[in-house]
Each structure stands twice: as structure tokens, then as C-alpha cells.
Amino acid sequence: MSALYLLILASITVAAFFLIAFIWSVRSNQFEDKQGAAIRMLQDDELKIN
């Protein structure tokens, strides 16, 4: 049953990873401008100089 220890450890680690990802996304203002991101992703990265 020592596998249980490993499983508990693994499950909490995965969950903690998601928690950290969530906090990071809030901290980096990803929820501040939801409209903008939707528009930005459709635009070309590089400028075509004519």
C-alpha cells in the first residue's frame, strides 16, 4: 500500500501545479482584457513592409 503515498503525492502535485498556473495567469493580467486577446491573436505578428 505504499503506492498510496506516491499517488497522494502525485495528485497533490498536479493540483498544486494548476493552482500555481491559475495564480500566475491572474497576476500577469490575463483576465484584465478578454476582448483584446481575442482580436490580437488574429493579427499577423510581422509587418509586411511595402
Binding site: 495528485s11 493540483a15 498544486a16 494548476f18 493552482l19 491559475f22 495564480i23 491572474v26 497576476r27
Partner: peptide
Amino acid sequence: KQLIYKLGVAGFCFGN
């Protein structure tokens, strides 16, 4: 934002 962090932590702990 603080409130959102608190919510995130509570959700994580509650689920586990």
C-alpha cells in the same frame, strides 16, 4: 485580484 487568489486557493484546498 486578492479575492481571486483567495478563491483559487480555497478551490484547490476544498477539492483536495
